[in-house]
Simulated assay, not measured.
Amino acid sequence: MQALLFEQGVQRIVEDQTGPITYYSDVITPALAKAWFDALLAQGDWHESSRMMYERLVGVPRLHCHYAVANPTLPSVLRDALAVVRQHVDTPFNSIGLNCYRDEHDSVAPHNDKLHELVSHQPIVLLSLGATRTMVIQRKKPPRLKTELELEAGSLLLMGWNAQLHYDHGIPKLQQPVGPRISVAFRVRPEKASERW
Protein backbone atom coordinates (compact mmCIF):
# COMPACT_ATOMS: atom_id res chain seq x y z
CA MET A 1 0.00 0.00 0.00
CA GLN A 2 1.63 3.22 -1.11
CA ALA A 3 0.69 6.80 -0.31
CA LEU A 4 -1.51 8.20 -3.05
CA LEU A 5 -0.63 11.84 -2.51
CA PHE A 6 1.79 13.97 -0.51
CA GLU A 7 1.36 17.73 -0.58
CA GLN A 8 1.97 20.51 1.93
CA GLY A 9 2.34 18.19 4.90
CA VAL A 10 -0.66 16.00 4.00
CA GLN A 11 -0.05 12.36 3.06
CA ARG A 12 -3.09 10.43 1.87
CA ILE A 13 -2.39 6.79 2.67
CA VAL A 14 -5.84 5.51 1.67
CA GLU A 15 -8.26 7.60 -0.34
CA ASP A 16 -10.80 5.08 -1.66
CA GLN A 17 -13.96 3.48 -0.25
CA THR A 18 -11.88 1.51 2.28
CA GLY A 19 -10.58 4.67 3.99
CA PRO A 20 -9.72 7.38 4.43
CA ILE A 21 -6.38 7.24 6.22
CA THR A 22 -4.57 10.59 6.12
CA TYR A 23 -1.39 11.81 7.82
CA TYR A 24 -0.86 15.50 8.67
CA SER A 25 2.68 16.48 9.67
CA ASP A 26 3.68 19.50 11.77
CA VAL A 27 0.18 20.34 12.99
CA ILE A 28 1.78 21.96 16.04
CA THR A 29 5.29 23.32 16.53
CA PRO A 30 8.06 21.16 18.03
CA ALA A 31 8.15 23.42 21.10
CA LEU A 32 4.42 23.04 21.71
CA ALA A 33 4.58 19.29 21.09
CA LYS A 34 7.32 19.00 23.72
CA ALA A 35 5.38 21.14 26.21
CA TRP A 36 2.23 19.02 25.77
CA PHE A 37 4.25 15.81 26.03
CA ASP A 38 5.93 16.93 29.27
CA ALA A 39 2.60 18.05 30.76
CA LEU A 40 0.78 14.81 29.91
CA LEU A 41 3.63 12.60 31.05
CA ALA A 42 3.59 14.36 34.42
CA GLN A 43 -0.16 14.94 34.84
CA GLY A 44 -1.80 11.97 33.09
CA ASP A 45 -3.73 9.49 35.20
CA TRP A 46 -1.55 6.65 33.91
CA HIS A 47 -2.41 3.00 34.58
CA GLU A 48 -0.88 -0.38 33.90
CA SER A 49 -3.19 -3.25 33.02
CA SER A 50 -3.18 -6.90 32.03
CA ARG A 51 -5.27 -9.12 29.78
CA MET A 52 -5.73 -12.78 28.92
CA MET A 53 -3.70 -13.94 25.93
CA TYR A 54 -3.04 -17.53 24.96
CA GLU A 55 -4.71 -18.75 28.18
CA ARG A 56 -2.51 -16.70 30.49
CA LEU A 57 -2.58 -13.24 32.04
CA VAL A 58 -0.01 -10.90 30.50
CA GLY A 59 0.84 -7.25 31.10
CA VAL A 60 -0.22 -4.74 28.45
CA PRO A 61 3.08 -3.33 27.07
CA ARG A 62 2.28 0.36 27.53
CA LEU A 63 0.60 2.74 29.98
CA HIS A 64 -2.84 4.19 29.30
CA CYS A 65 -5.51 6.59 30.55
CA HIS A 66 -8.87 7.84 29.30
CA TYR A 67 -10.91 11.04 29.67
CA ALA A 68 -14.42 12.09 28.71
CA VAL A 69 -14.34 15.48 27.00
CA ALA A 70 -17.29 16.58 29.17
CA ASN A 71 -15.41 15.76 32.38
CA PRO A 72 -14.76 19.05 34.24
CA THR A 73 -11.38 17.67 35.39
CA LEU A 74 -10.16 17.22 31.80
CA PRO A 75 -6.55 18.49 31.82
CA SER A 76 -6.22 21.90 30.17
CA VAL A 77 -3.56 20.57 27.80
CA LEU A 78 -6.12 18.12 26.39
CA ARG A 79 -8.64 20.93 25.92
CA ASP A 80 -6.00 22.83 23.97
CA ALA A 81 -5.16 19.72 21.92
CA LEU A 82 -8.83 19.12 21.17
CA ALA A 83 -9.19 22.68 19.90
CA VAL A 84 -6.28 22.15 17.50
CA VAL A 85 -7.66 18.81 16.29
CA ARG A 86 -11.07 20.37 15.63
CA GLN A 87 -9.40 22.96 13.39
CA HIS A 88 -8.39 20.10 11.11
CA VAL A 89 -11.24 17.60 11.62
CA ASP A 90 -14.78 18.90 12.17
CA THR A 91 -16.04 16.09 14.40
CA PRO A 92 -17.85 16.14 17.80
CA PHE A 93 -15.18 14.17 19.68
CA ASN A 94 -16.31 13.19 23.20
CA SER A 95 -13.58 10.75 24.28
CA ILE A 96 -9.81 11.08 24.57
CA GLY A 97 -7.63 8.02 25.14
CA LEU A 98 -3.89 8.17 25.76
CA ASN A 99 -1.21 5.51 25.38
CA CYS A 100 2.32 5.99 26.66
CA TYR A 101 5.02 3.91 24.96
CA ARG A 102 7.81 4.17 27.53
CA ASP A 103 10.61 2.77 25.37
CA GLU A 104 11.35 0.41 22.51
CA HIS A 105 9.85 -2.53 24.41
CA ASP A 106 6.34 -1.02 24.53
CA SER A 107 4.02 -1.72 21.62
CA VAL A 108 0.50 -2.43 20.44
CA ALA A 109 -0.30 -5.49 18.31
CA PRO A 110 -1.97 -5.10 14.90
CA HIS A 111 -5.67 -4.46 15.47
CA ASN A 112 -8.64 -2.38 14.43
CA ASP A 113 -10.72 -0.28 16.80
CA LYS A 114 -13.87 -1.99 18.08
CA LEU A 115 -16.68 -0.57 16.00
CA HIS A 116 -19.37 -1.22 18.63
CA GLU A 117 -17.51 1.26 20.86
CA LEU A 118 -17.60 4.00 18.21
CA VAL A 119 -20.35 6.15 16.72
CA SER A 120 -20.90 4.95 13.18
CA HIS A 121 -19.00 6.77 10.44
CA GLN A 122 -17.12 9.11 12.80
CA PRO A 123 -13.32 9.17 12.38
CA ILE A 124 -10.54 8.51 14.87
CA VAL A 125 -7.70 11.02 15.09
CA LEU A 126 -4.31 10.34 16.71
CA LEU A 127 -2.02 13.15 17.88
CA SER A 128 1.60 12.02 18.36
CA LEU A 129 3.89 13.52 21.00
CA GLY A 130 7.43 12.58 22.02
CA ALA A 131 9.66 10.14 20.15
CA THR A 132 8.90 9.09 16.58
CA ARG A 133 7.48 5.56 16.30
CA THR A 134 6.55 3.50 13.27
CA MET A 135 2.92 2.56 12.72
CA VAL A 136 2.33 -0.45 10.47
CA ILE A 137 -0.94 -0.25 8.52
CA GLN A 138 -1.94 -3.40 6.65
CA ARG A 139 -4.96 -4.33 4.57
CA LYS A 140 -6.89 -7.27 6.05
CA LYS A 141 -7.75 -9.01 2.78
CA PRO A 142 -5.59 -9.79 -0.25
CA PRO A 143 -3.69 -8.07 -1.55
CA ARG A 144 -2.40 -7.57 2.04
CA LEU A 145 -0.52 -4.40 1.18
CA LYS A 146 1.39 -2.73 4.00
CA THR A 147 2.55 0.79 4.81
CA GLU A 148 5.08 1.70 7.50
CA LEU A 149 4.35 5.27 8.60
CA GLU A 150 6.67 7.34 10.81
CA LEU A 151 4.48 9.13 13.36
CA GLU A 152 6.41 12.27 14.31
CA ALA A 153 5.80 14.59 17.24
CA GLY A 154 3.18 17.19 16.42
CA SER A 155 1.51 15.12 13.69
CA LEU A 156 -2.07 13.91 13.27
CA LEU A 157 -3.27 10.64 11.77
CA LEU A 158 -6.91 10.50 10.70
CA MET A 159 -8.50 7.08 10.24
CA GLY A 160 -12.01 6.94 8.87
CA TRP A 161 -14.57 4.68 10.54
CA ASN A 162 -14.67 2.56 7.39
CA ALA A 163 -10.91 2.01 7.56
CA GLN A 164 -11.42 -0.09 10.71
CA LEU A 165 -13.27 -2.62 8.55
CA HIS A 166 -10.46 -2.97 6.03
CA TYR A 167 -7.14 -2.28 7.79
CA ASP A 168 -5.22 -3.26 10.92
CA HIS A 169 -2.76 -0.87 12.54
CA GLY A 170 -0.12 -1.37 15.21
CA ILE A 171 3.09 -0.06 16.78
CA PRO A 172 5.76 -2.81 16.80
CA LYS A 173 8.54 -3.23 19.32
CA LEU A 174 11.98 -2.01 18.24
CA GLN A 175 15.46 -3.49 18.47
CA GLN A 176 17.16 -0.13 19.02
CA PRO A 177 16.62 2.23 21.99
CA VAL A 178 13.97 4.93 21.61
CA GLY A 179 12.55 7.54 23.95
CA PRO A 180 8.96 7.69 25.23
CA ARG A 181 5.99 8.57 23.02
CA ILE A 182 2.43 9.55 23.90
CA SER A 183 -0.42 8.88 21.47
CA VAL A 184 -3.55 10.98 22.09
CA ALA A 185 -6.61 9.40 20.42
CA PHE A 186 -9.78 11.41 19.82
CA ARG A 187 -12.96 9.39 19.27
CA VAL A 188 -16.74 9.76 19.19
CA ARG A 189 -18.24 7.10 21.43
CA PRO A 190 -21.92 6.31 22.05
CA GLU A 191 -23.20 8.48 24.89
CA LYS A 192 -23.21 5.82 27.63
CA ALA A 193 -19.81 4.50 26.57
CA SER A 194 -18.29 8.00 26.52
CA GLU A 195 -19.23 8.44 30.19
CA ARG A 196 -16.95 5.50 31.09
CA TRP A 197 -13.99 7.07 29.31
Score class of each variant (00 low, 15 high):
Ser120Tyr: 08
Val14Glu: 03
Pro110Asn: 04
Pro123Ile: 07
Gly179Ser: 14
His88Asn: 04
Arg102Ala: 09
Thr18Leu: 12
Leu174Phe: 03
Glu195Leu: 15
Tyr24Cys: 02
Arg181Gly: 11
Gly97Glu: 09
Leu145Asp: 08
Gly154Cys: 03
Thr73Gln: 14
Val85Leu: 03
Val125Tyr: 02
Leu174Val: 04
Gln2Ala: 13
Thr132Lys: 15
Thr134Gln: 14
Leu129Arg: 06
Asn71Gln: 12
His64Asn: 14
Gly179Gln: 13
Leu57Cys: 15
Arg139Ile: 07
Val85Asn: 01
Glu148Ser: 15
Val89Glu: 14
Gln122Tyr: 04
Ile13Ala: 00
Met53Arg: 14
Trp46Arg: 07
Ala153Ser: 15
Gly19Glu: 07
Leu157Cys: 03
Asp80Trp: 04
Arg187Leu: 12
Gln87Trp: 10
Ser183Tyr: 07
Gln43Met: 12
Pro172Met: 11
Asp45Ala: 10
Pro180Thr: 00
Ala68His: 08
Pro143Gln: 09
Ile96Pro: 08
Lys173Cys: 06
Arg133Met: 10
Thr18Ala: 10
Ala3Asp: 08
Leu4Ser: 03
Asp80Ala: 09
Val77Thr: 06
Pro123His: 02
Cys65Asp: 04
Leu98Glu: 01
Arg79Leu: 06
Ala131Phe: 00
Ser183Trp: 10
Phe6Ser: 14
Leu41Met: 03
Gln122Ile: 02
Ser155Asn: 05
Lys141Cys: 13
Leu174Gly: 08
Trp46Thr: 05
Pro61Asp: 03
Ile21Cys: 06
Pro142Cys: 06
Ser76Gln: 01
Ala35Gln: 11
Asp106Val: 11
Leu174Glu: 14
Tyr54Pro: 10
Val77Phe: 00
Pro143Asn: 10
Asn162His: 04
Thr22Glu: 00
Asp16Ser: 06
Ile171Thr: 11
Arg196Tyr: 05
Ala35Arg: 07
Arg79Thr: 10
Leu129Trp: 04
Glu191Leu: 06
Gln8Ala: 14
Ile171Gly: 04
Gln176His: 14
Pro143His: 15
Ala70Cys: 06
Leu5Trp: 07
Gln138Pro: 06
Leu149Ala: 12
Val69Cys: 04
Glu152Ile: 03
Gln43Ser: 11
Thr132Cys: 15
Ala109Asn: 09
Ile182Thr: 05
Leu127Asp: 05
Leu174Thr: 06
His121Ile: 13
Glu150Lys: 15
Leu145Pro: 01
Met135Ile: 12
Glu104Phe: 09
Ala42Asn: 11
Val58Lys: 06
Leu157Pro: 02
Ala131Gln: 04
Pro30Lys: 04
Ser25His: 00
Glu152Phe: 01
Leu82Asn: 07
Arg12Pro: 02
Val14Asn: 00
Ile21Ala: 06
Leu129Gly: 00
Ile182Ser: 01
Tyr54Arg: 08
Arg56Trp: 08
His64Glu: 15
